[in-house]
């Protein structure tokens, strides 16, 4: 029972990471109906930026927040410079551009930092925490905590601030948004910035457990896709819930059923399964296409 609980908890911890990346994907999807295949690599690259600063002697938390800011700017720039020209292009062109970005960030990281793995520090204590009879890794607890704080902040931002409202409006109905004076183009860029910032946090939270290397995020991105699809790719709350569900499921299946070697195949089955059986996910809106 103890082991089981620990597995569940470990699942929640990684699930939080999936939830964050899934949320970043959903934010971009909602606004533009594009899936950002480069989301994971941008997160990975941001984590390297944090590593550089920490390696140069900067304390953890300033490096953490500075990285978030840099990732935000990076996201905005990518949208403005690279994604903007293909906004109206066919799906294939958009996918190719995103894959191009994925490849560029991956190779840049390999070029600058080499492919050898690096140790990334955790801001949380090394000793495990006692809760009753159970031992929990402080980093896992901390990561879950950080994820929850990020989610709460985002919720408050979208729910209670005029800018958050404008971003939601721009994602839903760009034409009407322009008619009330919202600069829709900038809202999209802002969405990209936020998504990149969330990704950076996810990267910095996962790096201490999986170690930092240029391919760190590829599996995580896959789980985030699965999470977003399970929750409904146009539903931020669903994506978060999906992330935690996928994390726990992955850990339990890995520990008791299929073993650790087929975890990615599990994501594949989940993705194809959800897409075929219920493309709108558990909590998504069902779309009807007019012909």
């Amino acid at each position: 029972m103890d082991a089981f609980l620990n597995q569940v908890f470990a699942g929640l911890a990684t699930g939080g990471i999936y939830a964050s990346v899934a949320l970043a994907l959903v934010m971009i999807y909602q606004a533009t109906h594009q899936v950002n295949f480069a989301q994971g690599e941008i997160a990975m690259f941001s984590t390297y930026i944090a590593w550089t600063m920490i390696d140069a002697g900067m304390p953890y938390w300033p490096a953490f927040f500075l990285t978030i800011a840099i990732a935000f700017v990076l996201g905005v720039l990518i949208e403005r410079v690279i994604v903007r020209p293909v906004e109206q292009a066919p799906v294939l062109s958009v996918v190719v551009v995103f894959i191009g970005l994925l490849v560029i960030f991956n190779s840049l990281a390999g070029w600058i930092y080499t492919y050898t793995i690096k140790v990334f520090p955790s801001p949380f204590p090394k000793e495990p925490l006692h809760v009753g009879d159970h031992f929990f890794s402080a980093h896992q607890l901390g990561a879950v905590g950080v994820t929850l704080v990020v989610l709460a902040l985002l919720y408050a931002f979208f729910r209670y601030t005029p800018l958050g409202l404008a971003m939601r409006a721009a994602a839903q109905n760009p034409t009407s948004s322009r008619l009330v004076g919202i600069r829709v183009g900038w809202m999209l860029a802002l969405g990209w910035g936020l998504a990149a910032a969330i990704g950076a946090i996810a990267g910095m939270m996962v790096a201490p457990t999986v170690y930092l290397d240029p391919n760190m995020m590829s599996g995580i991105l896959l789980y985030a896709f699965a999470a977003a699809l399970v929750g409904g790719i146009d539903n931020p709350g669903g994506a978060v819930l999906g992330g935690f569900m996928v994390g726990v499921l992955e850990n339990l299946l890995g520990a008791y059923v299929i073993g650790n070697e087929l975890k990615l195949a599990f994501a594949l089955v989940l993705i194809v399964g959800v897409l075929v059986v219920r493309p709108s996910g558990l909590f998504g809106r069902v779309h009807v296409t007019r012909v």
């Binding site: 409006a169 109905n173 009407s176 948004s177 008619l179």
Partner: peptide
């Protein structure tokens, strides 16, 4: 729009997934 021209478009342009109050708040966005 920022110069003070408000347009009620054909089809009404409602933000259907937002609440009535949020729709109004958007009207005063600028």
């Amino acid at each position: 729009v920022r110069l003070g021209i408000a347009h009620v478009p054909d089809g009404r342009g409602t933000f259907v997934h937002l609440t009535t109050e949020e729709n109004l708040r958007l009207g005063a966005y600028v």
